[in-house]
Nucleic acid binder design. Structure first.
Lengths: 249, 249
DNA sequence: GTTTCCATTTCGTCA
DNA sequence: TGACGAAGTGGAAAC
C-alpha cells in the first residue's frame, strides 16, 4: 500500500517512459466533455495504457465507468493527501479527473504486445461468402457489385437474378430488426428511382424479429436465413482469400 | 513473478470468494461464441470482476480485445506449464480461453464500490429540457406526449404547434446523420397514415451532417439546433425533477 | 476531416 | 424474454 506522496513520482516516471500503469484504490471521478459525470468514492481499477488512453473500471460490469480515448495528457499530483490523476484530451476538449483517497496497489508495467488478432464470422465474412457463393442466397444469382454507393449510403451486395431483375441484398450478422428493414427499404427506393428495371430486396440474416415480419410482407422484401458462422465455415472450407476484387463481374 | 503452479490455487481461491482478480502476463487467447477469434502471444492485462465478467486488455486501445459479460463459469488449471483460464458463459454458449506462458503479476483484490454515478447531458436530459421548456424548440409549442408508441417504435416528443399542427420531434445528442433522418421519416409516415392533420417533423440535435441537409429539404423536415450541455444547464438552473410525468398534458 | 456503418457492440427499458 | 433505441458509444473504411 504505497503512500500518496510516493506514488506521484512513480506514476510520472512511468508516464514519461510510456509504460502502462495500473492504480487500484479508493477514488472519486469527475468527467467533463461531450457530457459530464460524477462518481462518488469507491474502490476502482484505473488503467493508463501506452497509447495514453485511460480506463476507470468498477469491480462489476463490462464497460468502464469513465475513460478517455488514446491521446491524453496527464497531470499527476498530490493534493491535500489525495492523489490526483487528471487526463486531458486536448483534441476533444475532454477531461477526466480522478482523486484517490487511498492507493492499494500501484503497478508500472513494461509490457509489449504485437500478437496478431483475427476475428471470424463478422458481417464482412458473410459478405465474402455471398460474393463467392451467390447460390447460397438463390440459385442463378449473379453479383454485379458490392458496397455500391447509392444516393445516401452503400448497398451490401447488388445482383441480377435469373430473370435479370435487380436484387439488393442487405446483410446482418444478428437478428434483423426494424432498422435493417428501413435501411434496405431506403436503398430499394433509391434504386427504383434510378432504374426502370424490376427491383427485389433481400434481407440476409440469421433471423428477423417478429414485428419485422409484417413490414417485410408490406414492403415485399424477402428474408433469407443465413448464419455468420456457417458463412465463416464455408469460407474456411473453400479457402477463400481475403481479397474481394475478384468477385466483381 | 509467481510460478504457474502457484497461481492456480490462488486464482481458484479468489474466484470462490468472489474477489476481483487481475492477471498480467504473456498469453494467447481463443474465443468461440457468436463469432470466434484468435489472438497470438503477447502481454495482456486480464481482469476477472466480481460479477464473473472477464476482460482481456492489450497495452493499447480503449476496448478489450476479448471479453465475456457477467455470469461466467471459470476453469483454472495448469497445462504443460501454461496457466489456462477458461471462461464459459453457459447462457450465451460462449467461451474465452486464455493460455498464459508467463505470469508477471497476479492480484486478488478485496475491493468494494457502492459509489453513486450520475451522468449529465444525455439525450434524456435533452428530452426533459424540451418537455419542461417546449419554447426552446419553437414558441407556442404544446407537448402532447413523449415516448409515444407509433406503429414501429417510439416518438421522442409529440406536440401541437400554435396552428394546431402535429409536430414529431426526434432528438439526437450528437451530430445527426442519415439514420436520424430515416428514423424521423419513419415516424412521420406512420403518423400521417393515422391522422389527417398536417404533420411537421423536427430534428433537434447539436448539428447535422452536410449530406443530411439535402435529405431534410427533400423530406421537408426542420432542423432545430440544440446542444445537450445547454439542456443540462437549463435543467440544473430550473431544478427540474427527474420525474417526467408532470409534463404530460 | 467528414460521413457512414459495423460491433462478439453493451446497456437500459418496456411490453 | 424479445424488441427497440441510446451510448460520453468505439472503430474502420471510403471519399
Amino acid at each position: 500500500m504505497p503512500r500518496i506522496k510516493d506514488a506521484v513520482p512513480i506514476i510520472q516516471k512511468g508516464l514519461s517512459e510510456k509504460k502502462a500503469i495500473i492504480v487500484i484504490g479508493e477514488c472519486s471521478v469527475d468527467y467533463v466533455g461531450r457530457a459530464s459525470s460524477k462518481l462518488k468514492l469507491g474502490d476502482r481499477i484505473v488503467i493508463i495504457k501506452r497509447d495514453s488512453s485511460i480506463l476507470v473500471h468498477r469491480p462489476r460490469d463490462y464497460s468502464p465507468v469513465n475513460w478517455q480515448p488514446p491521446g491524453c495528457l496527464f497531470e499527476i499530483q498530490s493534493l491535500n493527501d489525495f492523489l490526483s490523476i487528471k487526463a486531458v484530451h486536448k483534441k476533444s476538449k475532454e477531461t477526466v479527473n480522478i482523486s484517490f483517497k487511498r492507493v492499494y496497489t500501484l503497478l508500472v508495467l513494461d509490457i509489449f504486445d504485437t500478437g496478431e488478432f483475427t476475428l471470424y464470422a463478422s458481417e464482412e465474412d458473410m459478405q465474402r461468402c455471398i460474393l463467392s457463393h451467390p447460390d447460397i442466397i438463390e440459385s442463378g444469382l449473379k453479383v454485379i457489385s458490392y458496397e455500391k454507393k447509392i444516393e445516401p449510403g452503400f448497398v451490401d451486395v447488388y445482383c441480377l437474378d435469373s430473370l435479370n431483375r435487380l436484387v439488393v441484398v442487405e446483410i446482418k450478422r444478428r437478428i434483423a430488426g426494424i432498422d435493417a428493414v428501413m435501411q434496405l427499404e431506403k436503398y430499394l427506393e433509391a434504386v427504383r428511382k434510378y432504374s426502370n428495371r424490376e427491383v427485389r430486396g433481400v434481407l440476409a440474416a440469421p433471423g428477423i424479429s417478429r414485428s419485422v415480419q409484417k413490414s417485410l410482407v408490406a414492403l415485399n422484401i424477402e428474408f433469407k436465413p443465413l448464419s455468420p458462422k456457417k458463412c465463416a465455415e464455408l469460407l474456411r472450407k473453400t479457402s477463400e482469400s481475403k481479397s474481394l476484387e475478384k468477385y466483381i463481374t
